[in-house]
């Protein structure tokens, strides 16, 4: 996904608020844990990001962009740090008072390019949300990541993404948000045609921030 296409998508997801319409936007601090291929290749890091969420009647959309600097974790065999930029987009439709179905995309790119796998995938899944109190909502989502594409090639028949979200109205239009995401991709590669080998990818991400409601 190109940056221009991503910008156009974010603009499309940020229409002017109207009656029956709600928009929140805000910055986030990110914590991340990234593992690839083997237990010894693991990274931890922090970063910044932003999110935008909009709802109109039963339709809602969410987009998040984070940039995380990942360093080799203690005991890791990795020697070099790298930076990832990840874009997540969801479009959801409420099918019940506490549930909705959603589709979206995931795109993660690494810089330097070959220090980690860049990946893009389409996500399809569902989420459940519940207002546990005035202005406080918890969300649980489960997505299947379909047709993932890796910069280093390979395939991943089973790729899943789990999420836990919390949105609390702190005061007036100010919201506090916290989002957890865990995704695992059972990537398999076939280097040199010698047979498939496992090269799984696993990432956990926590985004904590503020959002202003319009």
């Amino acid at each position: 996904m190109t940056r221009s296409a991503l910008g156009a998508l974010l603009l499309a997801l940020a229409p002017r608020p109207a009656s029956g319409q709600q928009v929140t936007v805000g910055p986030q601090v990110v914590l991340s844990d990234y593992r690839e291929v083997a237990a010894g290749l693991r990274y931890r890091g922090t970063g910044l990001g932003g999110s935008l969420w909009a709802r109109r009647d039963r339709l809602s959309a969410e987009a998040a962009v984070v940039r995380v600097s990942l360093d080799p974790a203690d005991g890791s065999a990795a020697t070099a740090s790298f930076t990832t930029t990840q874009v997540d987009v969801w479009v959801a439709y409420d099918v019940a008072a506490y549930a909705s179905v959603e589709v979206g995309v995931l795109h993660r790119s690494a810089d330097p390019e070959f220090d980690a796998q860049s990946v893009g995938a389409v996500r399809v899944g569902a989420r459940s949300f519940y207002e546990i109190g005035p202005g406080a909502t918890v969300v649980f989502r489960a997505n299947y990541l379909a047709a993932p594409k890796f910069s280093g090639g390979g395939r991943a028949a089973v790729s899943l993404d789990l999420g836990l979200g919390l949105d609390v109205r702190l005061a007036g239009r100010l919201h506090g948000t916290a989002t957890y995401a865990f995704n695992r991709m059972n990537r398999k590669t076939n280097p040199g045609g010698t047979g498939e080998i496992d090269a799984p990818i696993q990432e956990t991400l926590a985004r904590v921030g503020l959002a202003v409601q319009f």
Binding site: D33, R35, V37, A39, R42, Y180, P200, Q202, A206
Partner: peptide
Amino acid sequence: TLGSSSKREL
């Protein structure tokens, strides 16, 4: 294969 992930985020 990758071992137990970090629970810091969760």
